[in-house]
């Protein structure tokens, strides 16, 4: 299988092939039946994935299902039954809980506005567990790790072992990279390749692309007011609406009253499938500009380290 053709197929499905790629793909498809079968299989997965995602959203949200109903006269009776139920349930929710939530939601909007004020942010991550995990040399230690982020997709996460060794993962937006204390430095053309070390990466916890992550939280959590932080910052709490969402059970966010910039986030009931802390706190240290080269791996290791490059098609 020519890896270029696999890329061409995916580009074609996403509507981003140029004329030359399209011609090459067409020539390849008609070259032999096996190529056409391979193409058909890739399309089948893409097509079925679209059906699954759209079906998930029809259950979770009114609008897409309503659209389907309008476009599918012969399936009205099949579609309107569940849609009616969802509409009724949503109306009940709005009637019974919409008004008290409005102010908290407005405060949440302030966080969204504040999320774009400083592109570069530096946080300290601390475990709130009474018995934090013992550091493992193959995993980036999270307790007391420092996280530098730049909207929307650059980050450097630096964990320090008790002996002072550092484990660093990051992304410059184009390439992901990982620098263990010893051995090869790994880089990848998948910019998200090494984000797994970020706490909650798998669960939509707001760090790197703060605005998008906050929007996601707003949909999956009920928003309420928290008491003021000892530093005087106002706070909001988020409680997970459903266990179907795999994020932490509760989140508290404290922010600057005037700017809306988040100062501290505490996460409780973190999913434990991949180990890591049950509760952790992320505090803003500063919003100093970090410089473009800061997010490149070369800025974080000596020139003598061997670099292993991973290239996905």
């Amino acid at each position: 299988m020519n890896p270029n053709m696999r890329t061409h197929i995916h580009h074609y499905l996403d509507g981003i092939t140029d004329e030359k790629q399209q011609r090459e793909l067409g020539d390849w498809i008609k070259q032999c039946p096996e190529n056409a079968f391979f193409f058909a299989e890739e399309v089948a997965l893409h097509n079925h994935l679209a059906d699954i995602i759209q079906a998930h959203n029809e259950v979770a949200c009114i609008a897409p299902a309503e659209t389907v109903a309008m476009k599918s006269p012969f399936t009205w009776s099949r579609v309107w039954g569940p849609v009616g139920l969802v509409l009724a349930a949503c109306l009940m929710l709005l009637l019974y809980s919409g008004i008290p939530r409005l102010n908290a939601a407005q405060e949440f909007q302030k966080l969204l506005d504040g999320s774009e004020k400083f592109p570069d942010r530096t946080y300290r991550i601390q475990s709130l567990d009474s018995h934090p995990d013992t550091p493992d040399e193959h995993r980036l230690p999270l307790d007391n790790a420092i996280l530098h982020v730049r909207n929307p997709d650059k980050f450097v996460l630096i964990g320090t072992f008790p002996n002072g060794d550092k484990f660093q993962n990051g992304s410059d937006g184009e390439r992901g990279w990982s620098i263990p204390p010893r051995g090869r430095v790994q880089t990848s053309n998948d910019p998200m390749r090494f984000r797994g070390a970020l706490p909650g990466h798998h669960h939509g916890i707001p760090f790197v692309n703060l605005k998008m992550d906050l929007i996601q939280l707003r949909e999956a959590y009920s928003i309420g007011f928290a008491g003021n932080h000892p530093n005087g910052w106002p706070g909001i709490t988020l409680s997970k609406k459903s266990n179907e969402y795999r994020g932490p059970r509760n989140i508290s966010i404290w922010y600057d009253r005037d700017s809306g910039v988040i100062q501290q986030m505490d996460f409780h009931g973190m999913p434990k499938a991949r180990g890591g802390p049950d509760s952790l706190s992320v505090s803003l240290i500063n919003t100093n500009p970090l410089g473009d080269s800061f997010f490149q791996h070369q800025s974080h290791h000596g020139a003598d380290r061997i670099i292993q490059q991973e290239e996905f098609p």
Binding site: R6, T7, H10, H11, D14, I16, E42, L45, H46, L49, N151, P152, D153, G173, E174, N189, D190, P191, M192, N209, M212, F312, P313
Partner: peptide, 19 residues
Amino acid sequence: LGMTANSISKSLLRIRERL
């Protein structure tokens, strides 16, 4: 999302490969 089209495209390709 404030990202390049190329980076999104690569990520989508990787997601489908993982699936």
